[in-house]
């Protein structure tokens, strides 16, 4: 019993220490962020790496998520004879929940792991140390542009995911299953408000901050070994996924 309590205490203490380190790290990243826009090329490169390089997976998954939503939504709504509401139902669920959450999970799997492993390998191969010896702050030169690249890319990827998913819903619902095209779009236009769009993009931005921060933090503090880099990459995915879902609940509770 005592051993169990000691282990729980040790785990809790380790968690709190890590959380404290993450908070300090976040503070420094925020402090250095305005300066990063003085060298926009570095940030733009990272928007490309995190954003453009994730487009294929985001669009492919968006299409199939939309198509599944079309099938399931049609099946459910036709039981009540209201299949014409497929457009509005799909649009609201994509804008408010599915779009930001699924994009964040995909972002953590694609861009987050790339960021964490890149920074971890830079640490393992002395590139971070070399920068420090060259009097170049690696936080300023490497970490902050990557963080900002992810933060900028996430809402854009969320918007693209939602658009492609809506196309998928329309493809299945209207083209394959015969939902009236006019009803599909007009109901969506009438019901969806600007606030719903803002909610989705706000979530995308918050998830972008969380996932990018976790990725750069884990990568930057990775043990300089192959195992350490692998562990940092795994932690990035796991912590990002859990954080996304926890934040999603909090944001939904606030915004409803």
């Amino acid at each position: 019993m005592t051993a169990l309590l000691a282990e729980m205490y040790s785990s809790l203490r380790g968690f709190l220490e890590r959380l404290g380190a993450l908070t300090r790290f976040f503070g420094r990243v925020l402090w250095l962020s305005p300066g990063a826009f003085g060298r926009p090329r570095l940030v733009v490169e990272q928007v490309y790496n995190s954003g453009a390089m994730s487009l294929v997976i985001i669009m492919t998954c968006g299409l199939f998520v939309g198509m599944v939503l079309g099938l399931q939504g049609y099946d459910l709504l036709q039981r009540f004879g209201s299949e014409d509401a497929l457009g509005v139902g799909a649009a609201l669920s994509l804008l408010k929940e599915l779009g930001p959450v699924v994009t964040a999970l995909l972002f953590a799997g694609r861009a987050g792991t790339a960021l964490a492993s890149e920074l971890g390998l830079m640490r393992a191969t002395d590139q971070i140390s070399a920068m420090e010896v060259m009097a170049v702050d690696p936080m300023r030169r490497v970490v902050v542009p990557r963080f900002l690249g992810g933060v900028i890319a996430m809402p854009l990827l969320t918007a693209i995911f939602i658009m492609v998913a809506l196309f998928g819903v329309q493809l299945v619902g209207v083209q394959f299953l015969g939902v009236d095209q006019g009803q599909f779009w007009s109901q969506m236009r009438d019901a969806v408000e600007l606030g719903d769009v803002a909610e989705g993009l706000t979530k995308g931005l918050v998830f972008g901050v969380a996932c990018s921060l976790i990725a750069v933090f884990e990568g930057y503090h990775a043990q300089p070994t192959a195992e350490g880099v692998g562990r940092a990459t795994t932690r990035t995915v796991v912590i990002s996924a859990v954080t996304t879902l926890v934040l999603d609940y909090i944001l939904t509770a606030i915004m409803l």
């Binding site: 830079m122 191969t125 002395d126 590139q127 140390s129 070399a130 010896v133």
Partner: peptide, 12 residues
């Protein structure tokens, strides 16, 4: 100062 690292530590 300049430092030559054992593995070069070039930015990849």
């Amino acid at each position: 100062m300049g430092m030559l690292f054992q593995n070069g530590a070039l930015l990849t």
